[in-house]
């Protein structure tokens, strides 16, 4: 304890000093998976001192934008691709093509090599089986099932204006049905929605803790809540799951680009890719296989087969317009 307090005081008194071999990585990976990946990275590159800061996508984006005048980080790691393309963030990046980049399909990386995605996540439904049984509801298998009046007041969804996960759900439904039919469908769904929660993970947590029967959320949240022991199922909507990429990138202002590049190279090594397969349902590189608990949760071996083929560029370009229309319809 004394040592801790002392080191705290020392850190308080001394401004952070940058040594060669130090890099700072900002990540939006979930806290436990980020810790597991970091452990591996440190073993693979013992000479680099990797400082990692983990915040949720929105908080991290706000911080990166605020720090824009003097970025404190060298690498962005596992950060929503639809947010990294925000010009305020994209402007701070420097193109870099790490070794092995060609193994990533072109749809999962930036044409100018400003970012590349090795992992991603998909939109799924979290269903509380205890609550469903109590209310006599069948477990839904698709978005369409959720428009059944029996689900009225039992479904929660993220608000697309504040949550990236919420936005990919809305935008994927609009992309797959076409805008006219898409909005008509969302109108129907709206009648059953109890709340549009302002975070992408909370709807699944709300379903897990039995506040509501169904929470639209994303895959990792569902798998982890099942793992925690909640009476819950994950349902990949039959229409196809909207999905989001988690991008890595080099920050142009980095003072230690050599080590930053080495770190980015490492994110494509077979060792790293294997680790992704332990934690993530979408990995853009071939390698390991899907862990048993993912299959138990209901994912097929080839997760690509259940994904809606997302047009990421269009999703990014239409964002403001879709959010404005969504708010006009459902929030006033």
């Amino acid at each position: 304890m004394k040592a801790s307090v002392f080191s705290g005081l020392m850190a308080a008194l001394l401004p952070a000093t940058v040594y060669a071999g130090d890099i700072t990585v900002y990540t939006a990976y979930e806290e436990d998976e980020a810790a597991a990946f970091l452990e591996l990275a440190k073993t693979a590159m013992p000479d680099i001192n990797v400082n990692m800061l983990r915040l949720s996508t929105g908080d991290l984006a706000a911080r990166i934008i605020a720090e824009k005048a003097n970025p404190q980080h060298d690498v962005i790691w596992g950060f929503a691709a639809s947010t990294i393309v925000n010009p305020e963030i994209a402007d701070t990046l420097e193109a870099y093509a790490p070794a092995g980049l060609e193994k990533i399909p072109t749809s999962f990386r930036d044409g100018d090599n400003k970012w590349f995605a090795v992992t991603g996540y998909m939109a799924v439904l979290c269903v509380n089986t205890e609550r469903a049984a109590k209310l006599g509801l069948d477990v839904p298998t698709s978005w369409a099932d959720l428009t059944d009046p029996k689900f009225k007041g039992e479904v929660v969804m993220p608000n697309p204006a504040s949550s990236g996960t919420g936005y990919i759900q809305v935008s994927s439904l609009l992309q797959m049905k076409g805008e006219d039919a898409g909005w008509t469908f969302l109108d129907q769904l709206h009648g059953n929605i109890a709340q549009y929660i302002k975070s992408g993970s909370k709807p699944c947590n709300a379903a897990a803790s039995g506040e509501y029967t169904v929470g639209a959320s994303f895959d990792m949240r569902a798998i982890k809540n099942i793992d925690e022991g909640f009476p819950m199922m994950m349902v990949v909507p039959a229409e196809g799951a909207g999905n989001e990429l988690e991008a890595n990138a080099l920050v142009a202002s980095s003072k230690n680009k050599d080590d930053a590049r080495r770190f980015l190279d490492w994110t494509l090594t077979p060792e790293a890719v294997n680790a992704y397969y332990d934690w993530k349902a979408i990995v853009t590189l071939p390698g390991g296989s899907l862990p048993q608990k993912f299959k138990d949760a209901g994912l097929p071996e080839d997760t690509n087969s259940v994904l809606h083929p997302t047009d990421f560029a269009a999703a990014g370009a239409d964002r403001d317009r879709i959010i404005a229309e969504w708010q006009r319809r459902y929030e006033n």
Binding site: G58, A161, A194, Y196, K198
Partner: peptide
């Protein structure tokens, strides 16, 4: 307001939408 407010939106959650949600 975010955790308990449900769909009841207020100015503070609107800042959250704009700054954290949309940058």
């Amino acid at each position: 307001a975010i955790v308990i407010g449900g769909d009841f939106n207020v100015l503070a959650t609107e800042i959250y939408n704009k700054v954290i949600g949309q940058g």
